[in-house]
Design a protein around this nucleic acid. Structure first.
Lengths: 236, 236
DNA sequence: TGCAACATTTCTGCATCCATATTCTGAAAC
DNA sequence: GTTTCAGAATATGGATGCAGAAATGTTGCA
């Protein structure tokens, strides 16, 4: 629950603290650090060529994001995410994505509608061609458009947070060649519902879309994907 | 999204940073600082008798909680919450409280069930006696029990975050003598649904409970409650 | 009088230093 | 051989110093 805006991104880019924060988040999400691994201020500082100060501040932020856990006078540890946590997050997200789709139906701008349509048709093209990389990228973008279209900075921020969070376990999901196209078909139906101004339908579809994404992830082996940190390709 | 646990509370209590963090949050939520007011590191530090370091770290955390906004090389400003933000939060919460009630129905322990029942009947007593203070306290506690009973640390943390957040605007809501008892009646029905293991009903009731709370708040004048910082008494 | 360039002040960002809590190590005692 | 306790090593928590960016104030010129 925080307010993102342009200024914030400027900070992140040009301040040491911001860079450290993003670097660490990226590393944790990508699996560079093992779960429960201890992060030491000096070590990280030296690695990034900065002093302890920005590292410490970044730690506080990462703690609040739930990515690390700080034990007083002891150290910072990468938090573990259990399979139940993942499931819970998806269930929560499914509700919020539904709400987001409803609000998007009510508030989407013509420009956003256009971009969403374009996204879906472009994805359809890449799906046929088997371009998984682009498909994953478009999938991410679809959801971002949806978040922006709901016209609620509170909900948008919540969903973006979750999106970030689950990246840790959402590995090789869309790499599965079946899910990508199927996911896009669902996007298409959501898009059409929004275009038809059918908020109830859009909500239901978006809701189900997340549940399907989760089910697919479980079927494809949450166990393997979770823990051993393979290459990330994807989204939803 | 962060992981709360016992250790964390220890930190907050005994470290300077934790104390500064909580003091500032309390002050912002209670309205000691105006919206968009600038918070200066040295001033706060001197006021609390600490150096800039813990203040700065507290700032970073407050920023992620969305309570302040930090502009690089400029300063920290108390963020404004619009009426739309409040409405959005309540809508989001209503969904999540519903989900929470559903999960609580499935996972509540006998001890938690007992405490919930006790809470409701005790509140009934205070409602008859017109003890608004205790009623508000019990109202808060009811929700905390529900959060704990859902047996999901992700959802529990989300809801506690929101709960904190809306404290800023949820002033004198339950001070309204009508809402307190009415709220408790709703709690009672939620409790009974959980006891009867009717998850669907519990979800619906909890969902509606939040919507009612919001409607009541709006009827009682969100406008006045919001912005001029009157005494806080209450909950939901 | 208005404006622009410059100087001053103020505050943040980061580095460094000191204090303290925890952990590790090793020697002595049983 | 095991346990225990003391001291060293190490890491974090907090304070302070310094450089630089932004805001403010001032002066000089049109």
């Amino acid at each position: 629950m925080g307010n993102y805006d342009v200024k914030q991104e400027v900070t992140d880019k040009y301040s040491l603290r911001g860079r450290v924060f993003h670097k660490l988040r990226e590393d944790i999400l990508s699996g560079k650090y093992e779960e429960h691994e201890e992060l030491k201020e000096v070590a990280i500082g030296e690695e990034l060529g900065v002093s302890r100060t920005p590292v410490r501040e970044a730690f506080r932020q990462l703690e609040l994001e739930g990515l690390i856990q700080i034990i007083p006078n002891k150290g910072a540890y990468v938090t573990g995410i259990t399979e139940k946590d993942v499931k819970d997050i998806y269930m929560i997200r499914s509700l919020l994505e539904g709400l987001c789709a409803r609000w998007a139906t009510e508030h989407i701008t013509p420009e956003q509608m256009d971009e969403m349509e374009e996204n879906v048709y472009l994805a359809e093209f890449h799906a046929k061609k088997g371009h998984l990389e682009q498909l994953a990228e478009l999938d991410n973008r679809f959801h971002d458009i949806l978040y922006e279209a709901c016209d609620s900075k509170m909900l948008e921020h919540q969903l973006k947070d979750f999106h970030q969070y689950v990246l840790r376990v959402r590995k090789k999901t869309l790499a599965n060649a079946n899910r990508g196209p199927k996911s896009n078909e669902e996007h298409k139906r959501i898009m059409e519902a929004i275009k038809a101004r059918d908020a109830d339908l859009a909500e239901n579809l978006a809701h189900q879309h997340m549940i399907n994404a989760y089910d697919n992830m479980v079927k494809n082996g949450l166990h393997e994907a979770y823990g051993n940190h393979t290459l990330v390709t994807s989204s939803e």
